[in-house]
Design a protein around this nucleic acid. Sequence first.
RNA 1: CGGGGUUUGGCGCAGUUUGGUAGCGCACUUGGUUUGGGACCAAGGGGCCGCAGGUUCGAAUCCUGUAACCCCGACCA
Length: 478
Amino acid sequence: MAKDKKLVEEITPMSEDFAQWYTDIIRKAELCSYSGVRGCMVIQPYGYAIWENIQKIMDKRFKETGVQNVSMPMFIPESLLQREKDHVEGFAPEVAWVTHGGNEKLPERLCVRPTSETLFCDHYSNVIRSYRDLPKLYNQWCSVVRWEKTTRPFLRSTEFLWQEGHTAHATQEEAEECTRMMLNLYADVCEKELAIPVIKGQKTEREKFAGATETFTIESMMHDGKALQSGTSHNFGDGFARAFGIQYLDENNEQQYVHQTSWGVSTRIIGAIIMVHGDDAGLKLPPKIAPIQAVIIPIAMHKDGVLEKTKELKERLEKTFRVKLDDSDKSPGWKFSEYEMRGVPVRIEMGPKDIENNQVVLVNRVNREKTFVSLDNIEDELQNLLDKIQQQMYDAALQNRDGKTSSAKTYDEFKEIIAENSGFVKAMWCGDEECELKIKEDTTATSRCIPFEQEKISDTCVCCGEPAKHMVYWGKAY
RNA sequence: CGGGGUUUGGCGCAGUUUGGUAGCGCACUUGGUUUGGGACCAAGGGGCCGCAGGUUCGAAUCCUGUAACCCCGACCA
């Protein structure tokens, strides 16, 4: 259709330039815009509303597991940051420093938190005395700052919003269990609420968090086949506890070190939602987190009491759903495209013909399928359609991922797949960091994770041919 | 931090080669006609040409410096 052409002019087609498509979507849908500070973005109302919905869902789930919210300072004294060796080495290159308070030079410079392990540890060392004080299950919603070399909206910005959970436990088993539980929680939120299928697994030594004994991750695949680490959960063992002196007296009156975890999900997940679900017409938002679940478009709204009827419908539906009525004097066609671009899952058209027949038209954002439904049971029909869309989006994302996942037995095969079509490659690995590095140098692909669900592709490492220890997902990543 | 590109009303661009005081489309405002896939007519408003120096009677245009953004690599959520 000729009109469709005009529509896509404003959004670069994915197939032409995926990166430009991503930037176009963000700008056109008004998710965020650049600010006066390099790499820092203004998250606009529509983008922030998505974050708020994710927050609500996750916060509720955290609390169901006994987690409490707290707020930590945004500054970390340099000496505190340096307490744990691996941690400071990991983060020091990318921290911002505060050197002055007013006109006075500070006696010790303060780092703007890149993550808050050290603050939580310092606090825990002050408040934990007895096994009766454990576990501590804290979380905070905040922003952190990392002076990244290159930035991209949502995916990598200098300052970003996230939640960081930090827990302290009496035993290693408890900490390990918590680490896995939170990873499962993240995976469940991604799959059930955001309609993003994920692969759960463990990061290799090389890819794990600075200071952790083990890092678990959920990896998702974007529409272009690239991987995005979408959430992580770390087990710290007692490493931080030893560095910060976090000890408690156990039941036998003996001093013990606590075992800790931390886990986080950031606004990067919004980037995942955009890149997993979107298409050339714009965003597609999963109904469960869409700020607007259905938009009502009046047709010929100055005729036959259309406007009044659509207002009535809005008041009726907003008791159950997040709905918007667009009664601006833009043409209906403009509105159709606009709300598709903004990813609103369902469009409800209501015009004189519909009013005459006591019906409305529901249009599915995923496939533009139209259904005529009676006003009598509109609530049920809308709920069914939203559920259906949620499922369709998950299925489509899963299909895309599976279609771009392959396995390789030989190194030539491996290199060929990575070079031709980006995506996940399942291949065996000997466990040696040398091979990981070589693969990265040869192909730019990195180990995404050692999945919990192992398969045996072959007996030997895809790179060096030595006996294999694990099956690993490899891929190019954001 | 390396290699490449861009920067001119809100957005997208032309103008730069050959210096002469800024233009187009969309968006915006007002009025009217419209409305089932980005409507039409008419009248308006809006730009220290990224920033700082320099050359010149005169700079968006030439020279120097600098910043931001985008893409490709190295580092990360």
